[in-house]
């Protein structure tokens, strides 16, 4: 890409199509199902903040999918996404190799996570959600918080970024459902112990819907402000379609432009769950057809 000598991307009036190619510059398999891609995206890297996402489209027949940023580097002009290859969109994305261009990435979208010095902040990453929790933990640390991190997963191989999170955190806890690593149990078990032992000012939880929901349930009796990052079905990601509607505090919100962070105690979790599951059969068929060679 064309850059100034200081490494910053060229002026907007001098942009060229080449400077905006979303070329993969690094690819790592973090586990059999978890993939990391670092991608050239200088304009997004310049504007990105913790908690924001990008919309990714892998080609003519693909869906647009939202992925929250795991990292970004304005100097290098790159962004990093970590994703679990569970649906057709993420499986297609996982097929891109170093040197290849991803057809469409746009962002950064959504409001950044509200970062301030709350005092003690617990940042929870569940499974691949840890990838998104890391920049939030870092921003919380940089804002002066005492940062406690909890990483949870079903089993050991799904624990990611342990060292990177530990480097940020003042304290770190790890839980696995099956006890294959860290404490046997759920992130909420560790969270409860922390809240029993000390004053916690804010909890940020990012992970699968059931985990975020149970974190909300766990913190509610303690009256601790709890923020979750929602990932409903989206299409455009810019507020145009309302497919990502979610009820928060009795009001309809568009996750893409009003979120993706919301007050966990106000979210209508049942509604979110059913909206996310609506295309279960169609998504399964699309996934299977990809492995079988194309059509849905």
């Amino acid at each position: 890409m064309s850059t100034h000598v200081d490494g910053s991307p060229c002026r907007l009036a001098d942009l060229t199509p080449d400077s905006l190619r979303n070329t993969v510059v690094r690819k790592e398999k973090l586990s059999p199902v978890l993939t990391l891609l670092e991608i050239n995206a200088p304009l997004i890297a310049r504007s990105a903040r913790a908690g924001q996402f990008v919309m990714v489209w892998s080609g003519e027949h693909s869906e647009r999918i939202p992925l929250t940023l795991s990292d970004w580097n304005a100097d290098k002009g790159t962004i990093t996404i970590i994703f679990q290859e569970v649906g057709r969109g993420t499986m297609e994305l996982g097929r891109f190799d170093i040197g290849q261009d991803i057809p469409s990435i746009s962002g950064p979208l959504g409001h950044p996570t509200e970062i301030e010095n709350y005092g003690t902040a617990v940042v929870i990453g569940g499974g691949v959600g840890t990838a998104i929790a890391r920049p939030v933990a870092l921003a919380m640390k940089n804002a002066g918080n005492h940062v406690i991190t909890i990483i949870g997963a079903r089993e050991k191989s799904l624990i990611i970024l342990e060292d990177e999170m530990r480097a940020i955190a003042d304290e770190q806890f790890i839980t696995t459902d099956d006890g294959s690593y860290g404490r046997k149990g759920l992130v909420t078990d560790a969270l409860k112990d922390i809240m029993d032992a000390q004053k916690v000012n804010i909890v940020v939880a990012i992970g699968p819907l059931p985990m975020m929901r149970f974190v909300a349930k766990t913190t509610e009796p303690y009256g601790v402000k709890t923020i979750v990052s929602l990932d409903p079905i989206m299409i455009d990601g810019t507020g145009m379609c309302g497919g990502c509607r979610v009820t928060v505090g009795g009001k309809t919100m568009f996750t893409c432009v009003d979120g993706p962070d919301f007050d966990a105690h106000q979210v209508d979790w049942d509604e979110l769950k059913s909206r996310k599951a609506f295309y279960f059969d169609e998504e399964k068929a699309a996934r299977e057809s990809l492995t079988a060679g194309g059509a849905k």
Partner: peptide, 9 residues
Amino acid sequence: RREYATPIR
């Protein structure tokens, strides 16, 4: 369309 991944019921 069959070959496109975006779902519709």
